[in-house]
Design a protein around this nucleic acid. Sequence first.
DNA 1: GTTAATAGTGCAAAAAGTCGCGTTAATTTA
DNA 2: TAAATTAACGCGACTTTTTGCACTATTAAC
Lengths: 143, 143
Amino acid sequence: MSKIIAEIKSELKNRGYRSSANREAILNVLDKADRPLTVGEIYEHFGRDKKIKDLDQSTAYRIIETLAKEGFVKFISLLEGYNRYELERGDHHHHFVCTNCQDITPIHLDSHLTDSEKQIEKEQDVVITHHSLEFFGICKNCK
Amino acid sequence: MSKIIAEIKSELKNRGYRSSANREAILNVLDKADRPLTVGEIYEHFGRDKKIKDLDQSTAYRIIETLAKEGFVKFISLLEGYNRYELERGDHHHHFVCTNCQDITPIHLDSHLTDSEKQIEKEQDVVITHHSLEFFGICKNCK
DNA sequence: GTTAATAGTGCAAAAAGTCGCGTTAATTTA
DNA sequence: TAAATTAACGCGACTTTTTGCACTATTAAC
C-alpha cells in the first residue's frame, strides 16, 4: 500500500469512519491512475484486477462521494457530461485535454490565479475557497 | 425576438439547418436566463411558458448538441455531475458558485490567462483553443 | 467473547442522459 | 401545388447516476 493511501486510511479512522475493503480498493485504483478517472473506468479496473467482483454501483458512487466530502478525492469536469475523480495529493494542478484524441495531461501552472481571486473577492464581496481550471486544444501528436 | 436570437436563426439557415419551433423555443429560454441552465431547467421553463408542451427529451438534448457544435451555446460544468448550457454572447466570462446556496454569478476577469496559455503551449508543444475556469466559495449573503 | 449501535452495503426503482430507427414536416425542384 | 429529399422529431430501449430502504458487518463497550 502506498504511503498516501495509508495516510488517508488512518485519517478516515480518526474521523470516525469504519474500515471498508471496497473503499480501500477504490483508493488503490485512483492511486495507480495517471489521470482522473470516471466511475466507469474505476469499475473496469475492478474487473481487471479481480479484487472485488460484486461491488454495487450505488456503493461505488457513495464511496467516491464520501472521499470527496472528506477532501481526499477531487471532482474534475472535462466537459464530457460526467465527472472524473482523482486523488488529492496536495499538488494543485490543472489539465490539458486534447479535443481530438481525448488524451489528458496534468498541467502545473506558475501563476496561481491569486490576484484574480483577490480581485473577485473584493468586487463581489465573496470568499473563494477553490476553483477549477482546465485547458482544451490539440496535443503534440494530433497537431 | 431578441437581436442575438434573430442572428443565430439567420446564421443557422445559412448553414443549411431548417427552421424548428423547438430549437427557437430553447434559444429563447436560454436568452432569457441569467445563468447557465441545466436541461431540466430548460424543461421547467417550457412548462411554465406553455409554449411547447410535448418536446421529447432526446430532441432537447439533440438541439442543445447542435447549437453547441455550431458555437451558439456553451457547455459549462459547475461540478454538479451534469452540464449546464448558456448562450454564447461573445463576452468571455467565468462563474462564481456559492457552495452553500448554489447561487451562480458571472465573473468578468481583467487578466485572460493568455500568458499561462502561451507557457503551456510552449512547454507541452500543444495548441490551446479554449479553457474552462470556475470559482467556488461562499457568497455575500451566506458569509 | 457477546452485545449494541450504526456505518457500509446491496437491491430495486427512479431520474438523467444517449442512441437507433421509423415517422413527420420544412424546403427545394419541377 | 405536388413530389422528392432529408433535417427534425418522437418513441422505446438502453446506459449512467441517484435515492430509499432493509440487511450486513465493523467497532466499541461490557
